[in-house]
Simulated assay, not measured.
Amino acid sequence: MRRQTPIIVLLTLVVVWPVLAAAHALPPTPPASPTRLILGVEHISAAAWALLVGCPSHPHDIQVWAEETAPQRPQTITALAPERWRAHFTGALPQSATIYGCGQSAALVIATTTPPLWLHGLFSIGATTAILLGARFIRRAHRTISPLPKPPSTAVWQAQLTDEEGERTITLPTGLFTAGSDPACHVIVLAPDIALRHAHLIITEEYVQIVDLASPSGVFCGPVRRRLRPHTPTLVNDEDIWLGATARLRLVKIGSRISR
């Protein structure tokens, strides 16, 4: 059995490697001609999305024209930086649209590149061969003792939040959570200077990190209120975190749940 294992692995690599090499070498579809208007698209939820635009003045005339839908105008427009704006829309994100604003138009296409048919066929052959070789390997190794599954994470943290609604405590397990004023956020913070998606909380069993999502009013840490760098995970110790000027957040580990 041990003598045949390297042969099975080698055959699997011989079959799968050309597929991976072909997929990696496939040239991407050339994008539309670059314009100054579109900087990026942010998918907030199934019912909300945002468009990042570049414009020297406030883009009052932004409109999104999608096929078979009425023109969309942004609900809010927020200044991010000089000549950069964030337009927040409601409704499903279109797959393709034409955007008008700042005295110009730009085509917006949100779609994945479709690989050619021959690559689909090559991938099917490689996947089928790999499955057959894997099944044969499993049948011969059925006597191997399977390791015990790792128990699910049971760490529990408490987020002690103080904002316009007063003080309240939110229990959070491990995972990735969003804090902001959008009702779709996991931790809803109510204050005038809180962005829709203000920060991310990365919670593990041992520690918590916070990431400022380039919010206009910022994220601050410690008694001297040191401002954190946007899009940079920062370890949260036993100190207060400030979202904007008035919202205070403290994260405390309260132990683990005992599952029966």
Rank of each mutant, 00 (worst) to 15 (best):
I110H: 12
A127Y: 08
A141E: 13
A141K: 08
T154A: 13
Q72M: 14
L93E: 03
P94E: 03
H120F: 04
S124K: 00
S96Q: 14
R139N: 08
T112H: 11
R143C: 07
H142Y: 03
T129H: 08
E165R: 13
T90C: 05
L148W: 07
T98V: 14
K150H: 07
Q75K: 09
A135V: 11
T78S: 12
R143T: 01
A141T: 01
L132I: 03
F89K: 01
I138K: 15
P82V: 00
A70E: 12
W118D: 12
P71M: 07
A97L: 06
L80W: 06
R84F: 01
A107C: 10
S124C: 03
A107T: 13
T76I: 02
G126P: 12
F89T: 01
A159I: 04
L108E: 13
L133N: 09
L117N: 02
G121W: 11
A141R: 11
A97E: 04
A111N: 12
I77D: 06
H88P: 00
Q158P: 08
A81G: 15
T113K: 13
A87F: 03
T114G: 03
R140Q: 10
D163N: 06
G91H: 07
T144Y: 06
L117Y: 00
Y100C: 00
G134R: 07
I77C: 12
L119C: 09
T144M: 10
T98Q: 12
V156F: 07
P94K: 12
R140A: 09
G134V: 00
R73H: 05
P152Y: 04
A106R: 09
A127M: 15
A87P: 03
W157G: 01
R143K: 14
I125Q: 09
I138Y: 09
Q72P: 05
T162P: 04
L122K: 00
A87S: 08
G134A: 08
E165S: 12
A70P: 06
L148K: 08
H120T: 11
L122W: 10
G101N: 05
L161I: 08
R140L: 09
Q104A: 13
C102P: 10
I125W: 06
A79Y: 03
L161R: 04
V156S: 13
G103A: 06
I125R: 14
Q75L: 14
G103S: 08
I110G: 05
A81W: 07
R136D: 04
Q75H: 11
G121K: 00
T162L: 14
F123Y: 07
R84V: 10
F123M: 15
P116G: 06
Y100Q: 15
A70I: 01
A92W: 10
T113N: 15
H88F: 04
A155R: 10
S96P: 08
G91P: 08
W118N: 12
S153V: 06
P115K: 01
P82Y: 04
T114V: 10
P116A: 13
E165C: 02
Q75N: 12
I99Y: 03
P151H: 13
A70T: 00
Q160A: 05
T128E: 11
A130K: 05
Q95N: 02
L148I: 01
Q160V: 06
